[in-house]
């Protein structure tokens, strides 16, 4: 599909002016004796109309050129490898600490800074993905819809190491991520990448909603757990004698809950930035599904051609002008 368009459509209102040469000739009217008795001369008629046409085309081409004639940018649907991914980012304040659980000292990276750097690389490397961003802390926050605008995505990821809020409300964050996926109707492979450094109890009611939503739609779930060194891992069973409750071991129970969702789920525990890098590389390897994506071709400017055409027509007119014979006026017959 090709489509011509003007950058300034209002200029097209001038186009009727191009009819002017059909009404008037560019030749200078001169007094000469009547040629009526000679009868019609087809060649002259052709020339006359040719010149008028040249004038029309010249004016129209100039108007289109001024209006910014171009071939519209097109979207080409292509097939590649990738997925539609919603990044669900924990913005609670513990993300501001480093992997050792302290506020980062000189030269150290906070957990979120490390994750931020690696996630940005991930986004840049994934050519055909659509990525959406949601944040959660005390409440879930919609940040960006599924989009391929990398600068916007990078700016959203950049904001993740700003000081965060107090709590971690994973459940509602997940519900929001599912909601972002729900709004996109394409058949692409879908994934949610949860980046957090902790977990919290998910309300029973919310658990049921999530279970139903995950059952409805095939969705891969990745949990990038930025673990503080020395703390308990996700899969570690509680020591003998301690009650195994979600309140006491939220990470373990969140993991157990995710495993019951019946969806492709994988948790990555990362205790340092190298482990984060490994996890992201693996996710990148896993999310290679055939995907249709649109590639935007830039619009191509046709103004130059319009001006060129106008110039050509005007040259024709100028030639005719140069050939014009001037009949001396009022000379004795």
């Amino acid at each position: 599909m090709t489509a011509l368009a003007l950058s300034h459509p209002a200029v097209a209102l001038l186009l009727p002016l191009a009819l002017l040469p059909l009404l008037r000739t560019s030749a200078t009217p001169q007094a000469y004796p009547s040629l009526e008795p000679l009868g019609g001369d087809p060649l002259s008629a052709v020339f006359s109309w040719l010149l008028r046409l040249a004038g029309t085309v010249a004016i129209a081409a100039l108007i289109l050129g001024i209006g910014g004639l171009h071939l519209k940018g097109q979207t080409i649907t292509k097939t590649g490898e990738g997925a539609h991914i919603v990044l669900l980012i924990d913005r609670s304040s513990s993300m501001d600490n480093n992997f050792a659980g302290r506020a980062p000292a000189g030269g150290e990276e906070s957990k979120s800074a490390a994750a931020r750097r690696l996630i940005k690389d991930f986004i840049l490397a994934r050519e055909h993905d659509l990525v959406g961003v949601a944040a959660f802390s005390t409440s879930p926050m919609h940040v960006l819809p599924l989009t391929d605008h990398k600068p916007a995505l990078l700016a959203a990821v950049d904001a993740m190491d700003r000081p965060g809020l107090a709590f971690t409300n994973v459940g509602r964050g997940l519900a929001l991520s599912l909601d972002i996926h729900e709004r996109d109707t394409s058949a692409a492979a879908r994934a949610i990448l949860l980046v957090s450094d902790g977990a919290a109890v998910i309300d029973r009611k919310v658990q049921e909603t999530l279970r139903a939503a995950f059952a409805k739609r095939k969705m891969n779930l990745y949990w990038l757990f930025l673990r503080t060194a020395g703390t308990r891992g996700i899969s570690e069973a509680p020591p003998e004698g301690e009650p195994d409750t979600p309140q006491a071991f939220p990470e373990r129970h969140l993991d157990l809950f995710f495993k019951t969702l019946g969806t492709n789920y994988k948790a990555f525990e990362a205790e340092n930035s190298a482990a984060v890098a490994e996890a992201i590389a693996e996710i990148s390897k896993l999310e290679r599904n055939p995907i249709t994506y649109v590639e935007n071709t830039p619009r191509s400017d046709l103004t130059g051609y319009a001006y060129g055409l106008a110039l050509l027509c005007m040259l024709l007119l100028a030639l005719a002008k140069a050939a014009e014979v001037r009949i001396p006026r009022g000379s004795p017959a």
């Binding site: 944040a135 919609h142 940040v143 960006l144 819809p145 600068p151 700016a155 959203a156 950049d158 904001a159």
Partner: peptide
């Protein structure tokens, strides 16, 4: 939510956000 980004190129995501 996100740091400043160019407004023309990223009009659609900003508007939806």
């Amino acid at each position: 939510l996100f740091n400043p980004i160019e407004v023309c190129e990223n009009f659609a995501p900003i508007e939806q956000s």
